[in-house]
Design a protein around this nucleic acid. Structure first.
Lengths: 83, 83, 83, 83
DNA sequence: CTGCCATTTTACCGGC
DNA sequence: GCCGGTAAAATGGCAG
């Protein structure tokens, strides 16, 4: 036999191979992102600021959710929970 | 104009949008990988060991041997050697 | 010789031993914290709320620092940095 | 009254204060450990390998053997065995 | 080559 | 008691 010596081995190898494939795609995307930031820099933008902008755009909904969660926790704490 | 008030702004918005798009694809791939490890677990494999295997497969054989060698040397040095 | 077979080995063993000692102290502190939360629960407080309070007390200065960092980043970006 | 407005509040504040104190001690210990690894590096040891050694020392010998065994089995299963 | 940041791994904590 | 997600820590990669 050449690679996987039995049924379990074939299954395992399939798992490993698929993961490795997806990781490569992931790596390629990371490279694409890096390329865009390179272009960003060439266009005269501060990369760190742009990254921060992106982070803020992501965070705003997250912060709303967090605030809601804090409120919810307190309401539970004082026995006012609706559920 | 709707969002970006000038040429630089449009360029910047384009950059941000493209990065965000790629990041979402990255996130989706990460989820796919998680799913495979879930399947891996269901199939009865030790996920941590499978991850270790994938790590080893990424390394050059020489690197693997060298790392083992250093570890062995240190173990001898502190009297932890198996022999 | 019994444990470390040479000068380098003794040095290495000393390093390892000290790290292990500090890690144990760290672990003991973690246990102490857990014990306090147990007491907290017994006293009738909602542990999750107390933890959140602690987190919030930690976060306030962190948020100030973050805001300052954002300002700093922008000032750099527009060439107004003081340094 | 200054900070805690009642007995429960005082109790709660005591809990919070003690936890925060212990967390600071924990943080200080983490810094001490970092310092030792810095010294370790300066002494010419491979920090990653030393960390690996410490991990192995924490494990029961039987566990070490078992983990190696499983890895070996999987490597054989997918045809990566060295022998 | 050192410090920083992203990713990964590990420990914790709640629900089922 | 295990399993799931979540928060902390460690690791590795990268820019400066």
């Amino acid at each position: 036999m050449s690679e996987a010596s039995n049924v379990a081995g074939e299954r395992l190898l399939s798992i490993i191979t698929r993961v490795e494939r997806l990781e490569e795609e992931r790596k390629a995307l990371a490279q694409d992102i890096k390329d865009i930031f390179q272009e960003c820099k060439s266009a005269g933008f501060e990369v760190s600021v742009v990254k921060q902008l992106i982070r803020i755009r992501k965070m705003e909904p997250a912060e709303v959710a967090e605030a809601a969660q804090i409120l919810d926790t307190y309401m539970h704490a004082i026995g006012m929970a609706v559920d």
